Structures are given as structure tokens and as C-alpha cells.
Simulated scan of single mutants.
Amino acid sequence: MLELPIALTYALAILGGYLFGSIPFGLVITRAAGLGDIRSIGSGNIGATNVLRTGRKDLALATLLLDAGKAGIAAAIFSLVFNFHSGLLAGAAAFVGHCYPVWLKFKGGKGVATFIGMLFGIMWQVGIAFAISWLSIAVAFRYSSLAALVTAALLPVFTWWLIGDIFAVCVTAALSILLFYRHRENIKRLIAGTEEKIGQKKKSAE
């Protein structure tokens, strides 16, 4: 592992992770496919869910994998080159970069795929726990947002149970709070009973 002053290591991890996470793959892919600006349709988000609204499942899948991969790769590289905590910070910064990309005036996605990618990139055990929890809740209640929110709330517990590192617990807790904030509109719709379920088709106007 490369030995640098800890403050410099952390600064490089945060900066590198943030810039990598800021790459708006959803926007790049849809523009390259000739579909225009993804921000002008649906929710205006740059993530895979909104890309799916174009009707191109292949582009949505590519966006999902790339959004997850950018955080996972950032976390893995910094963990291997420096140390576990640096990798964790790089992955966390990539998540923040996806939510608030500098290239798009800090208007990005909600970050669920990027969050999961970060976990698998550096704490695969926690990533598996996250995936199992998300899938279980999504299948039971058919709300993608609810599955993400409940799992995010449980994530610090999973991290402590499986990793036992207080720094990692603090980082995952902070990111879970940010994920809740990014889903604030979904929370309002869940409370009001107007949130769309997985697979639900929008009613056509009469």
C-alpha cells in the first residue's frame, strides 16, 4: 500500500471519488443514443429509473451498472492503493458526486445504485445484506423507494454487525441520511398513498 500523510490520503480519496461519481452516465448514454437530454423527461433525474422511461431497457441497465460501478471502482482502488478508510471515503464521495455532480450544477440522481456499488466495492458483505433487504421489502410491498429507505435505515446496523468498524458505521449512517433527504418527495408520496408501485402503469387521462 502507498504511504502518504493521512490527511492527504483522505483528501485525495474524497476529491477523486467525488469527480468520478460526478460523471453523469445516464445523460451521456441517452445523448449518445440520440434520445436527447434525459433531464427533460419523467422525473428529470439522471439515474437508471428515469432512463428506463425512454423505453430503452438496455440503456437503463447500462446506466445502472455504470452508476454502481463508478462508486465501487473508486472505493476498491483507494482501498487497495491506500487503506480501507480511504476507500470508504472515496466510495462515499462518489455517492455524493452522483447526487450533486459538479458538471450538472449539482443536480444529480438519488444515488441508490451508486450506494450499492460503493458497498460491493469495499464491503461486499454489507452489499449483500443491503441487496437481500431491498429485494425482500420490494417484493413484499412493491415500493422501490420504501425498500431503499428501510434498508438505508438498517444499513448502519448491518455495517456494525458485519464489519465492526465504527468509522464505517459513521460513514454509512451519514450516507443513509443523505439518501433519505434525496428521497424526501418519495416519502411524501408514500405517506399520501400516491407513490407508484413497482410495475404499476400510469393511468391514462380520460
Rank of each mutant, 00 (worst) to 15 (best):
G69N: 03
F167D: 08
T151K: 11
A93Q: 01
A33E: 13
L59S: 01
K105N: 15
M1E: 04
S22R: 05
A174N: 01
N83E: 06
L162Q: 01
T9I: 10
L66S: 04
I116F: 06
I166T: 14
L178Y: 02
I191G: 07
V157K: 07
W161I: 14
R189W: 04
S86K: 07
F82Y: 11
L35N: 07
T172M: 11
I122H: 14
I128H: 10
K105W: 15
V112D: 08
I46A: 01
I198L: 06
L19E: 06
K203N: 12
D67P: 12
L135C: 06
E195T: 01
D58S: 13
A48H: 01
K201V: 10
L61F: 01
I122M: 05
G127A: 07
E196G: 11
T63M: 08
L66K: 06
P5T: 00
S145E: 03
I6W: 14
L64E: 00
I41S: 12
P5K: 03
M123G: 07
A140R: 07
D37I: 07
Y181T: 14
T54I: 13
E206F: 15
I73N: 08
L8D: 13
V28C: 02
L179N: 10
K110L: 12
A32R: 06
R31K: 08
E206W: 15
V139T: 14
P24H: 03
F120T: 01
A138C: 03
L59D: 07
A147I: 07
I23G: 13
S79V: 07
R189M: 13
K188A: 15
K105I: 11
K107A: 12
E206N: 15
R31A: 11
G91V: 08
G34Y: 00
V171E: 05
L2E: 03
W124L: 11
H85Y: 14
V126G: 02
G55S: 02
T159Y: 03
S86Y: 02
M123H: 08
A129I: 02
N45T: 03
S145P: 04
A13N: 11
V28R: 00
I116M: 06
T49N: 08
F115L: 14
L80P: 14
V102F: 13
S40L: 15
S176R: 01
A7Q: 11
K105L: 12
L61M: 13
I6S: 15
H98N: 00
L190K: 09
T30E: 10
A174T: 12
N45V: 13
A129Q: 13
A48F: 08
R31T: 11
F158H: 02
L61Q: 09
G69F: 02
K188N: 05
V126R: 04
T54P: 10
S86L: 05
W134P: 09
L52D: 03
I137W: 02
G26R: 04
N50Y: 11
G34V: 09
V81F: 06
V126D: 09
G44V: 02
I198D: 07
L155A: 12
M118T: 06
S176Q: 08
T63Y: 10
L178K: 03
A62M: 14
S145M: 09
R53A: 03
T194Y: 06
G55L: 05
V139Y: 13
H98E: 04
A71G: 14
G69I: 03
A152C: 12
A71V: 12
S40Y: 15
A74V: 10
G16D: 10
W124D: 15
I132N: 12
V169I: 05
G91N: 06
I177H: 08
G42E: 11
L80V: 15
Q200W: 02
I73A: 14
A62K: 14
